[in-house]
Design a protein around this nucleic acid. Structure first.
Lengths: 130, 130
DNA sequence: CTGAATCCAAGTAGATACTG
DNA sequence: CAGTATCTACTTGGATTCAG
């Protein structure tokens, strides 16, 4: 990994791999954080869903945020959008294989959260007590 | 899943487990997303670091955001803050075991990001072309 | 049905200056 | 050294209205 002395060509490999990792990680996080992305991805992972179905099943989401979040996920290739040219219009969204794969890797985080949920709550109470 | 008629006691168990999962996940994500938390956690995972060290090593961070992010991480029990009553003052931050554990579970996400970085870039270009 | 457009409120982040 | 205070700008999200 570090053969770095060809002078010109290693501008990229000169980046601290840990910094790169943190940066890459941040990109993923930005993609799936936000209040709605995960909920939408969850629904769209079980099969094609329509706009109005999502509006109902993702509790509390507004039409605007649903549209915006769908567009972002579609743009990143995490959601596939299919329009059926019927009247009235019918549009379906479905998670791509890439998105399903991502969803799978998130289980570790869910575990962590469940194991430490209590400890975090306690830490907050202690901190807020000051 | 729908045995629901013990009337009073199953308020909690009535929550769809998948919704709960999505919710828990969102909490974790909110804790570590944000522009700076990961970088700080990274530094503080290799041993105690001082405020000014962080200010230098987390590229681009302002004093204000460093303070705010440190406080949040400390509040959630992810960072331990130690004050040495010397002159000048000396304060050290270190990742807690819980935080190190979290950092470990993030490797799956890093893998995913690296495997699909290219595909995402392409998806964006295609999308933006319209 | 599936959005786009507009307006507004709240939260988040940068710049700068000041302090025990 | 390790912060706090203030002021401003950008971003995110909600409410509402309009349209193909």
């Amino acid at each position: 990994m570090s053969q770095g002395n060809t002078a010109v060509t290693d501008q990229v490999s000169a980046i601290d791999p840990e910094k790169l990792e943190a940066c890459t990680l941040l990109e993923v996080l930005n993609r799936i954080s936000g209040k709605w992305a995960i909920g939408i991805l969850l629904e769209a992972s079980q099969g094609p869903v329509r706009f109005t179905e999502l509006e109902r099943s993702v509790a509390g989401i507004s039409r605007r945020m649903l549209t915006l979040t769908l567009r972002n996920l579609e743009r990143d290739g995490l959601l596939e959008r299919t329009v059926y040219p019927t009247v009235p219009p019918r549009v379906e969204y479905e998670a791509t294989p890439m998105a399903r794969e991502l969803y799978g890797t998130l289980s570790g985080l869910v575990d962590w959260a469940q194991r430490h949920r209590e400890a975090i709550a306690v830490a907050r109470e202690v901190y807020d007590a000051q």
